[in-house]
Amino acid sequence: MLKKFLISSIVKPTFQSRIIASTTLNGGAGRATFCSVNSINPNPTASQIKVDQEDLEVGEHLVIDDPNQQHIKSFLNGVEFNGKSVNIYRPSRNTMQTGTLRTKKWVIELPFNPKWNDRLMGWWASKDTLNQLNLRFNSETDAVAYCKEIGLNYNIVEEDVTLRKKKKYGHRFRYRGDLVGEKEREVGIN
């Protein structure tokens, strides 16, 4: 603005420069009118958005078997799981493997709540997030002490029965009585 003012004062006569100065004042008034536009809120609230009726009916296809069973109180406050109890067990060895690393600790398993099937999408759903939680302890007495401290009911599940066999290398080559002679097989069973 200063540059414009200086140039106009040098080149043009004095009377015209006064008229230009008055128009700049009017321009400032125009900016003042532009500032009044900023008083409008640019972030509209959610109540002003139009909502379709179809959007409210999304969840109606869910079929819950028993809604009362889905409610679980928090176990951290020392409250029961609606009378359900917790299982304390030591996991057994996987029969597909020979390693025994996962069988050395005792696990507290929270009650398994039923799930419901979403017919539209085909998956199984659950309201509970505690299904994935398994607490591990070094001994059975530690797990029992934890349950008593918090106030949980607990069941101690029996361990699997494992017995040791007497083994010798020569047992591999024992006579089993199958090589006497090939007999005629009967037809009729299997």
């Binding site: 066999k165 089993r176 199958d178 097989r185």
Partner: peptide, 26 residues
């Protein structure tokens, strides 16, 4: 007959009353 004491006979005596079937044993 894979394990166990050597004193016991390795092959058992088995008798069958009924229909014959594919037993694969004496």
């Amino acid at each position: 007959v894979n394990f166990g004491d050597d004193e016991i006979e390795s092959v058992k005596k088995i008798g069958i009353i009924g229909n014959k079937f594919d037993w694969k044993h004496e």
